[in-house]
């Protein structure tokens, strides 16, 4: 399959932006938490789940989506949000708990909602799948070609919500695509200790739908299978499951002691980093000059820097704002 150079460039710069965003977030999160780690301290308190290493899953499918398509995401949402085009300033302000944030500081990093680009996420494993199912139902009822994508981790494929939703999506032939990011661990438990099948695309058989598997965190292969899944959904050919073998370079959350894996594991993974690989691929296979990539990288960094600056300079909400927005 030939891929347009514009798509390749977009995927590269978006992956780069996500990586830089998450690296900055790891730094911001660490502020105020040294030498003693206190989860409630610093400019970014609470739990923090970063997606460093998992960029290919987000960009490989979001490149095929439009504004009217819906994306739901779990507790590790930043890469999906950035790839779907969520307002970066307001997203970052939300994570810093500021009044300029997407939810005026009421949601935080696990609860980002941007109805302008139909993005939402949540902190309960598997719970976003039914929401995407409902968006797919609405798309069909309205007679549009819109699709809904639910991103989940491999652990969520063992939740009832996954199976209930796929049965209904198949039964009603809805434009739902469930993307399973198999990052190998449900917190500390490896997939082999939690899941009865070697990969979750096999479970598509149970619902009579399409299942795809993407090996080795490959953004190009993710692009290819996603293209087919999205086109099928738009044409009314029903739901799909895509499982991508991906890697989380960091702990489940920042502060995770990671006692469950070998210290060398991540070092080995970083040697075959998908962003580095794609950079080389663009230069070698597509003749993109390095200077052009450097310019894209600079632009992405500036956008991220501006978002962090916006978040830091924004005001906190008034304490009594806690009592607002319960009912519209």
């Amino acid at each position: 399959m030939t891929i347009s150079i514009d798509h390749l460039i977009w995927m590269y710069e978006t992956m780069y932006k996500i990586r830089y965003y998450e690296d900055k977030m790891a730094e911001a999160y660490a502020e105020g938490k040294n030498p003693v780690f206190n989860i409630g301290a610093g400019p970014v308190p609470g739990e923090m789940h970063l997606a460093t290493g998992q960029e290919p899953a987000a960009v490989g499918i979001c490149v095929h989506l439009k504004k009217e398509d819906t994306v739901t995401s779990p507790h590790r949402p930043h890469h999906h949000a950035i790839a779907k085009g969520v307002n970066l300033n307001r997203m970052t302000a939300e994570i810093f708990g500021k009044v300029t944030g997407l939810g005026k500081g009421k949601g935080g990093h696990m609860h980002l909602f941007d109805p302008d680009v139909k993005f939402s996420c949540g902190g309960i494993v598997g719970a976003g799948i039914p929401h995407a199912l409902g968006a797919a139902l609405a798309a069909k009822k309205k007679g549009t070609d819109w699709v809904a994508v639910a991103f989940i981790g491999e652990g969520a494929a063992n939740q009832g919500a996954f199976h209930e939703s796929l049965n209904m999506a198949a039964l009603w032939n809805l434009p739902l695509i469930v993307v399973i990011e198999n990052n190998q661990y449900g917190i500390s438990v490896p997939k082999s200790a939690s899941t009865s099948v070697p990969s979750n695309d096999i479970r598509a058989v149970a619902y009579g739908i399409k299942g795809y598997y993407v090996k080795d965190n490959d953004p190009i292969e993710m692009y290819n299978v996603s293209k087919e899944a999205v086109e099928r959904a738009r044409k009314g050919e029903g739901p799909s499951i895509i499982e991508i073998e991906t890697y989380r370079y960091l702990g489940h959350f920042q502060g995770d002691p990671e006692v469950y894996r070998d210290k060398n594991e991540v070092a080995l993974l970083r040697e075959k980093d998908p962003i580095v690989r794609m950079r080389q691929f663009l230069m070698k296979e597509h003749g993109i000059e390095e200077q052009r990539l450097i310019e894209l990288e600079n632009k992405a960094r500036q956008e991220v820097e501006a978002a962090y600056q916006f978040a830091r300079e924004s005001d906190y909400p008034e304490p009594e704002d806690a009592l607002k927005d319960l009912f519209v």
Binding site: T70, P130, G134, A135, L137, A139, K142, M168
Partner: peptide
């Protein structure tokens, strides 16, 4: 779970 969740997704649309 799926159909009440779907109501949420549809209402958001």
């Amino acid at each position: 779970t799926a159909f009440i969740g779907a109501a949420i997704g549809a209402a958001a649309e």
